[in-house]
Amino acid sequence: MTNALIEIRRVPLPGKEFILAEGVKKSLEATGKSGIVTATSASSHLQTRDVTTAITGLTLSEITEVETAVSNSPEGQARLMALEELCSKVTYQVLVILAASENISLDKAQYINRRYMKAKRGQSQLLIEALLQWRDKFEKKPMVTRPLASDLDIVRLTTPIETLEELAETISTINTNPDHKKNRDAVSELTVSGFQTNNRIIHRI
Rank of each mutant, 00 (worst) to 15 (best):
H203R: 01
V51W: 08
N72M: 07
E84Q: 10
I171C: 00
T197F: 02
T38F: 04
R135L: 05
L28W: 06
P142A: 06
S27K: 10
L20W: 01
D50N: 15
L127H: 12
A99Y: 03
L167G: 03
E129D: 12
R156V: 04
R200L: 14
T2E: 12
S105H: 11
V192C: 05
T2N: 14
L132G: 02
V66I: 15
T170H: 06
F18P: 02
T68I: 04
N175W: 01
S71Y: 00
T159S: 13
V155P: 02
L60W: 07
T68E: 15
S88L: 10
L46S: 08
V37L: 07
I128A: 05
P160Y: 02
D185N: 09
H180I: 11
Y116E: 07
K25C: 11
I128P: 01
E162D: 05
V155I: 07
K26D: 14
V96K: 13
E165W: 01
S101V: 08
K26W: 01
V70I: 15
P147F: 02
R79A: 14
Y92H: 11
D107K: 15
L152W: 00
I8T: 09
E22W: 01
G32Q: 04
K16Q: 14
I161K: 00
I154F: 00
L131M: 15
Y116L: 12
L83P: 13
L46W: 15
L157T: 12
Q123T: 11
P14I: 05
G23M: 00
S101N: 06
P142H: 05
E189P: 00
M117L: 15
A149F: 12
N175D: 15
S27M: 14
K25V: 14
E7I: 05
S34A: 13
T176D: 11
E169D: 14
L190I: 04
P147N: 02
R114F: 08
A130M: 08
I97V: 15
